[in-house]
């Protein structure tokens, strides 16, 4: 394994962290969007309380992956920027609106329009962003993005189903994570049943979308499909076991371990995709070898990442430990 491959592994790690942490934040926004009934305000408060301290740190994993990509594989970043501009631009709109709507609602005190308006913006943007990122990922596998045709990635059924799968996956993660947050205090215990139903429903939807995606993968991304059935298979198994395990654990009200299992279910998809993608970065357009920066630069990056992670990870652990239990929403 050379330096470029090592950097690629680090990027897949960063992407996994983004999917599992920020993904759950986006998924929570999806549940904010569809919250109805008498429990809706309680659900929204729980969601806001569990996101508060961590969403910005979770979001930075994306910047980490993007920076690693344009530093380590600059040519690929050029190709991605020139072919996936529409889904990426829409994902950016989602990112901008999600972040600003969240703080405007939390700190605005109604000074810039009613809080529930910003709540809606937050929820819609949280749904759009994973969809667009899923579509962009699919286009990297299919190579369907073309310069001068920004709509191409959004016309492909494969891309659209992949986007929907990303939304369902994040919603599933969020529902499972929120079960544990809700179980943490008596004030939110009544929300658990609704969240368990949501976890189950989103798991079923995600499973169905994954099943629908497979034939489209063969059709639109045959190169990746071939590798997916061989190299990707162990990860698919991990993903499926994780998904089923999460549901069983949710059924037994073991929410802590259920988080882990749900995380494996989503991580398995990311890893399977990454394994099947290698050595292409964008299939048919750019490979790892062709895109890699000079080795001295990649080595410097790896060193910087090593030192950076050594400093960062203890801080992250501290953050998650301090806020392991969300603020009791009733206390506000």
């Amino acid at each position: 394994m050379n330096a470029a491959d090592a950097l690629l592994l680090v990027m897949v790690g960063g992407l996994t962290a983004y999917a599992l942490l920020a993904g759950a934040d986006f998924g929570a926004g999806v549940w904010d969007l569809v919250a109805t009934g008498p429990d809706a305000p309680g659900q929204r408060r729980l969601i806001a309380a569990s996101l508060g301290p961590v969403w910005e740190a979770n979001h930075v994993w994306l910047i980490f992956v993007i920076v690693a990509m344009f530093s380590g594989f600059p040519t690929a970043f050029g190709v991605v920027g020139g072919t996936l501009e529409l889904p990426l631009a829409l994902a950016l709109v989602g990112i901008v609106l999600r972040g600003s709507a969240y703080v405007y609602r939390a700190y605005g005190g109604g000074a810039a329009g009613p809080d529930h308006w910003w709540g809606r913006v937050f929820a819609v943007a949280s749904t759009v962003t994973p969809f667009m990122l899923g579509t962009a990922g699919a286009a990297m596998a299919s190579g369907q993005g073309r310069p001068g045709d920004p709509f191409a990635p959004l016309r492909s059924p494969f891309g659209l189903v992949a986007g929907a799968l990303a939304v369902a996956g994040t919603a599933f993660l969020a529902a499972v994570y929120l079960c544990r947050d809700a179980a943490a205090g008596p004030a939110t215990a009544h929300l658990i049943d609704g969240l368990r139903r949501r976890a189950l429903a989103s798991a079923v939807v995600a499973g169905a979308l994954a099943a629908a995606l497979l034939p489209l993968l063969w059709l639109d991304a045959p190169t990746v499909a071939d590798r997916f059935m061989t190299r990707g298979m162990p990860f698919v198994v991990v993903s499926a076991l994780g998904g089923v395990g999460a549901l069983v654990l949710i059924g037994r009200r073991r929410y802590g371990p259920a988080r882990l299992a749900a995380g494996l279910a989503v991580a398995g998809v990311v890893w399977g995709w990454a394994a099947a993608q290698y050595p292409d970065l964008v299939v048919g357009q750019v490979t790892v070898r062709a895109a890699a920066a000079p080795p001295a630069n990649i080595n410097a990056l790896l060193l910087a990442i090593l030192v950076g992670m050594a400093l960062l990870i203890p801080a992250l652990v501290l953050l998650f430990r301090v806020f392991a239990q969300p603020e009791p929403p009733d206390d506000q």
Binding site: I63, F64, V67, A68, G72, P74, A293, A300, L301, G308
Partner: peptide, 19 residues
């Protein structure tokens, strides 16, 4: 595409500082 690698270190370090 041409200079992303040359600028990689400051951007990566900035990413960590932001993180």
């Amino acid at each position: 595409a041409r200079y992303g690698g040359a600028l990689g270190l400051p951007f990566t370090l900035e990413g960590f500082a932001f993180f």
